[in-house]
Write a protein that binds this DNA or RNA. Structure first.
Lengths: 231, 231
DNA sequence: CTTCCCTGTAACATATTTGTCATATTATTG
DNA sequence: CAATAATATGACAAATATGTTACAGGGAAG
């Protein structure tokens, strides 16, 4: 299982910080807080959080300015940043993207949405070592022992299904076409019918059982996707 | 950051061209000029400017005619166009084929105004990375995971509606004719009734729900447009 | 050589999407 | 306000895409 992730919340309004902190802690994250960009900067260098939630508008140094600084320092350049913006002003977004923001959320937002986005960014950014155990909602895949299990019980997967699952679990929230899957999972130089993918998807789904089927999602007209979020 | 943008000024009056060129160069743009639509067309294909400032009334080929040609060629379809119209052409603005024109400026205009409008158009047209998440007023489309959501809840879109929405969200504030939409969203070589577009617009609107319907706007006599601004 | 497990395909079953039409609605024009 | 043109909408059948199952052949293990 992944470490507990530490999230730094930067916002000048205490009420908002608390609200976010509660939501995140309920979702199993650890939170630290800062009420201005300068404090935040010091804290980041000190505590190296796994992610920074950053309010756009703040006294002294703006969120965007802090983001730039973090990006320009190699020590902090890899820490993902999610921006909290009051209104979704086009300009802000453009500048935000330039400054290397990973995502932004427009206030007001629901705790559910916040947590979902946060997880999504973390998943995207956290580099999975090729031999790293991946676990998602009780579904666990261990590349070293070459085993997959659901709620602790081993799953019975064929070799292809195993590779498919491994690929999916290390490339979540991303839609792949059948052709892409054939390239990535089967290998570039095999000639196999596209529809064959469907069959293996079916076998994988069956093996995952009701508990985890939903993770393998059909993207109609496109292909398939692995995601914890509802379609 | 951004490259220096190159603007093509098309007007038969040298004095006006010069005036505009000076204003734009002071604002940090690079200018090229043409005194008639034919020369302009060649120049556009050759130099691929980032934007075309086009006089409505010109000898030989009119501005509107040139605009039409640019729009119908995939190579030039994305180059933004700002029309320069004399006051008494005002009607044209309303009646005329406004599909594909990004903005109008009525002569006489102040350099300040021109530059402001131009920047505004460039800002919204500037190609967002093809895989970039687009979000507008809580409506969000993520090309990577191939998902659209409204206020955090997933939207149920058919493939065509998805493509339509993606096209609109990356080409905002610009009216498209049904034919253009068929070309851009359906693909150039399909024969489909123009009216079919209406039906898919309808489906898209329905899927967007009350919260976001207003973004898909009918431009009577012309086609449709995606914009946050009220009609 | 046999047995057993995997695979890829084909065939059939379902589910969704799509393009059109006919019919309302709504805007425009005189 | 009536006449007319342009859109909106709902329904449907045809076309597509995906789900599912069965099966034959390949290959590894014994």
């Amino acid at each position: 299982m992944g470490q507990v992730k530490q999230i730094l919340i930067v916002d000048d309004e205490t009420a908002i910080r608390e609200m976010i902190a509660v939501a995140l802690e309920m979702a199993g994250f650890e939170c630290i807080e800062a009420d201005n960009a300068l404090t935040a900067h010091a804290l980041i260098i000190d505590a190296k959080p796994d992610m920074v939630l950053l309010d756009w508008m703040m006294p002294k140094m703006s969120g965007i300015e802090l983001a730039r600084r973090l990006r320009s320092d190699a020590l902090t350049a890899d820490i993902p940043i999610i921006m909290l913006t009051a209104r979704d002003d086009e300009d802000h977004k453009i500048h935000g993207l330039e400054a290397g923001i990973d995502d932004y959320i427009t206030k007001p937002f629901s705790p559910r949405e916040l947590v979902a986005r946060l997880k999504s960014v973390l998943r995207r950014v956290t580099p999975k070592g090729i031999d790293q155990v991946v676990e998602v909602e009780g579904l666990r895949l261990d590349p070293v022992s070459h085993r997959a299990s659901s709620q602790g019980t081993a799953l019975d997967l064929g070799p292809t299904e195993y590779r498919l699952l491994q690929f999916f679990m290390s490339h979540q929230d991303r839609a792949y076409s059948r052709t892409q899957l054939l390239d990535m999972v089967w290998g570039g130089n095999v000639y196999v019918e596209e529809r064959t993918v469907d069959v293996h998807i079916r076998r994988l789904r069956k093996a995952l059982g009701d508990r985890h089927q939903y993770l393998i999602q059909t993207v109609r007209g496109t292909g398939y996707r692995f995601s914890t979020q509802t379609q």
